[in-house]
Amino acid sequence: MSGQDVAGAGGRAPSGRKVPRGLPGAIALTALLALYVWQIGGRGLAMLRSGEPVLIGIGVGVLVIPLLVIGLIAREYRLAATVQRMADTLAADGRLPVDDLPRSPGGRIDRAAADEAFEQRRVTVEETPDDWRAWYNLAFAYDAAGDRRRAREALRTAAGLFRA
């Protein structure tokens, strides 16, 4: 089945929503990680069945890796689904953030404009720390400022507030 069959005509899902651009890559990466988990899990189980105390200990350690991988993948997919629901909610309300920051001819965001937008959103979060919308906007301000780690933390905070 081709991507066109899954998404329907024009890259749209049967519900009429456009398929997220990164979804095929995420699915492919998840499939590769599933293959990795299967291989490592098989090796760990073989070590457990060996009956040798040292191999059993190593096998237990080896089996922890696939469990961590599965947990991290599930966490990221849950975050992605929640962020999409937040974006849909904001879009329905007409409050989805717009990337209108000035850019250089090379496409880089003007640092001073990003810092100014960030400061406004930081103040909003300080005034309304329980508002997921404020945290969502702060996440994209962090991203525009080039701080991906804090952007992700802010998205996780927004997602937690959204789910609550």
Rank of each mutant, 00 (worst) to 15 (best):
A28G: 12
P24Q: 10
R78T: 09
V62F: 06
I58A: 06
G41Q: 09
S104H: 14
A31Y: 01
L35I: 13
G44L: 04
A46H: 08
P66A: 08
A87V: 04
R121V: 00
Y77D: 07
A46N: 12
G10S: 09
I109C: 11
A141Q: 03
A34H: 01
G160W: 05
L29G: 14
R78Y: 06
G11E: 06
Y142W: 15
A87F: 03
R111S: 12
W132D: 04
D131C: 01
Q84G: 14
D110Q: 12
D100A: 14
A92T: 02
L35Y: 10
R121H: 03
L101F: 05
A74K: 02
L29D: 14
P97R: 07
R85A: 13
R111M: 11
A91S: 14
V62W: 04
L72C: 07
F140A: 09
Y136N: 10
R121N: 03
L155Q: 07
R163M: 07
L33V: 09
T128V: 06
V19C: 12
R12F: 12
L138W: 02
D93K: 15
S104Y: 10
W132L: 02
P24D: 10
D147R: 12
F140G: 08
L101G: 08
V62D: 00
P14W: 01
D5V: 01
V37Y: 07
A159E: 04
P97T: 06
E52M: 03
I27P: 05
Y36E: 14
G94E: 02
A154W: 08
G160T: 00
L161C: 09
E76V: 06
A7I: 03
I70P: 00
N137K: 14
A91G: 07
G59N: 03
K18Y: 14
L90Y: 01
L29E: 15
A80S: 14
D93L: 11
N137G: 15
A46I: 00
I40E: 15
R149T: 13
A31I: 08
A34Q: 04
R149A: 15
L67I: 10
V19L: 15
R150G: 02
V6K: 11
A26T: 07
E119T: 10
R156D: 00
A112W: 03
R150S: 09
G61K: 08
A91F: 04
L67M: 13
